[in-house]
Design a protein around this nucleic acid. Structure first.
Length: 557
RNA sequence: GGCCCGUUGGUCAAGCGGUCAAGACGCUAGCCUCUCACGCUGGAAACGGGAGUUCGAUUCUCCCACGGGUCACCA
């Protein structure tokens, strides 16, 4: 077979050579040890929560080493592509603070190694496709849709465990080899008839032989050589992932390919293609998948349809950006939490991320842990930061609350200041959505009497306590003076001044000062639980406090 | 079914031949406290199984079991 002739027949319009490509995309001039990484999502309009893991690793590794982190859009599957998806991806990644040095941005491509969208790189792929045909490694397959369907059926059969498994696999293998057979005349005839072809790379591996390769997170690997022909170009001329990966990551000079471990089984294909093309193999890092529990209690890969799989949902649920980032870090690097405890005020970006500390096994997504991380993150924020976070969230999710907050920003921030800023801050919020129920009673619009006065206490005592409180309340009192008055009231209605006194001799009293505080709290906030009552009343103001207590007394009567 | 990856408490995990097998989340007892939220002091809870190598295996090797992934002109 005259492969040169075949290559001209198949790719008559391709004039550029691999050498041209090499000079157009020269090796990067970077300091020793600098890593070039990338994230390469498909524009499906959906960004997987798990996608944050390789993305974060890639970003850290590049930026920690003075390298380059870029975004490439892998839009080689037109069937799955969604309008505006690329823009959505750049938006959500920048929302989570993953900043690119190169790649697709809202204002077009940035960087010298573009285009960064695969559909715009078809000419480049064809240069190498032609070379592989010329080298006798790649061959065309002209298939009708029906033939394709038949083959697909065989694939399906070969996959399913059945008694005839061996035969099914054999039938498939035969069909594959048959596709390799053709004559120049046949190709010319097909082409003349205007038929499209897919381009395959002939596999030369022996699965009995193993390739030794070290994955930076999985460790030393032994994988069988590839003996399955690889689709390079689909019949529309667009490359498959395999071909695009090899060419793009070589030309864009990626040093570390960071991707999910679901790619491990096709690694031998990629290694083969790198060899065919004469490219240097990059370092690989296959990251373990994020799992969920299925109904049988088994771990399953967190897939698109699962709860919590959509990264954008976390924003909608009200999780703050740093909380999500930190949670990802805790799972990615086992010593992150330890470091964070020693450096409580430093950003996760300051953490010396290490490949060695990455786990080789997949972990279960844990909402409890996320919430804990999140509570800690928010508890360290200033009232202003919390206010900003909540208002931004409410603007999207709860317009009335947004209006309520922004009508009196200082008031909202005073509320959010309670118990904040000290060494042991309150940890009330895991999400921005938790804020509204916490502070709702401060707003007449949302105030409701959720909790009733305790049944076991005498109504007359409650009314007496509340009445006395109104009579003696003085907004000039400091906290100690204020609480002394509560104790006085307790004493006057036959309650113990101190909780301890009551606990010592419960039969001597009808209750204790804590009960008095509880009456006031329920009257003022409508709930049994609230933050510091003294602070609450101060913020609420004397008039509203008195009014609420009076209303409450009416209620009781 | 083939191939590949994985296996320390419920979860995330430290460990890298000799440890009473860290820590965090969750659970729990108690303390602190005007309630809540914190905080503090405790507690329960783990090396999948079997062979080897070794004076000694959670740690090394092999086998098994279990779990996961993958087997497209999808990525």
């Amino acid at each position: 077979m005259d492969y040169l002739k075949l290559s001209e027949l198949l790719f008559p319009d391709v004039t550029a050579t691999p050498e041209d490509m090499e000079s157009r995309y020269p090796e990067r001039n970077l300091p020793e040890g600098a890593k070039v990484t990338r994230i390469a999502p498909s524009p499906t309009g959906f960004f997987h929560f798990g996608g944050l893991f390789p993305a974060t690793v890639a970003e850290r590794l590049a930026h920690q080493s003075g390298g380059v982190f870029y975004l490439r859009i892998e839009d080689t599957d037109s069937k799955r592509e969604v309008e505006g998806a690329a823009e959505f991806i750049t938006k959500i990644l920048s929302y989570y603070g993953l900043d690119f040095d190169e790649g697709v941005t809202a204002d077009g491509d940035k960087g010298d190694y573009g285009p960064y969208t695969q559909s715009k790189r078809v000419d480049i792929y064809h240069v190498y496709a032609k070379k592989l045909v010329r080298d006798g490694v790649a061959y065309p397959v002209f298939s009708t849709d029906e033939e394709l369907d038949e083959l697909k059926a065989l694939d399906k059969k070969a996959e399913i465990k059945s008694v005839n498994w061996e035969q099914d696999a054999e039938a498939r293998r035969e069909a594959m080899t048959a596709r390799r057979q053709f004559t120049m005349e046949q190709v010319e005839a097909e082409l003349a008839a205007g038929h499209k072809f897919a381009l395959f790379a002939r596999a030369d591996g022996d699965p009995e032989k193993k390739i030794k390769i070290t994955d930076l997170v999985k460790g030393p690997l032994e994988i069988p050589e590839n003996d399955e022909d690889v689709v390079l170009l689909k019949s529309d001329g667009i490359p498959t992932y395999h071909f695009a990966h090899v060419i793009d990551d070589h030309l864009m000079r990626t040093t570390h390919v960071i991707r999910g471990e679901e790619w491990l089984p096709s690694l031998s294909k990629h290694i083969m293609l790198f060899r065919y093309l004469g490219f240097k193999l990059p370092k690989y890092m296959h990251i373990a998948q994020l799992m969920r529990l299925d109904e049988n209690g088994n771990k399953k890969k967190l897939s698109k349809r699962d709860m919590g799989a959509n990264l954008d949902d976390y924003r909608k649920m009200g999780y703050s950006v740093p909380a999500v980032n930190e949670y990802v870090m805790t799972l990615l690097n086992s010593n992150y939490e330890e470091w964070h405890m020693q450096n409580p005020d430093r950003s996760w970006r300051d953490f010396p991320f290490s490949i060695k500390k990455m786990s080789a096994s997949g972990c279960l997504f844990d909402t409890e842990k996320l919430n804990d991380v999140s509570k800690n993150v928010i508890s360290k924020m200033t009232a202003k930061e919390v206010y900003d976070g909540v208002t931004e969230y409410a603007k999207e999710e709860d317009n009335l609350f947004y209006m309520t907050l922004t009508a009196k920003p200082e008031y909202a921030q005073r509320i959010l200041s309670i118990g904040r800023g000290g060494a042991k801050p309150r940890k009330d919020f895991a999400t921005w959505a938790d804020v509204k129920p916490y502070m709702a009673f401060f707003y007449d619009r949302y105030f409701v009497r959720e909790d009733k006065m305790p049944e076991d206490k005498d109504k007359a005592d409650i009314v007496a306590a509340l009445t006395k409180f109104i009579e003696t309340y003085d907004e000039q009192d400091d906290q100690t003076a204020w609480f002394e008055k509560c104790k006085d009231i307790a004493e006057q209605i036959g309650y113990a001044r101190e909780t301890k006194l009551y606990k010592k001799e419960p039969e001597k009293y009808k209750g204790h000062v804590g009960d008095v505080a509880s009456f006031i709290r329920i009257a003022v906030t409508g709930r049994q639980n609230s933050p510091d009552l003294y602070e609450v009343i101060k913020i609420l103001g004397t008039d509203r406090t008195v009014q609420r207590i009076k209303d409450c007394i009416e209620h009781i009567k």
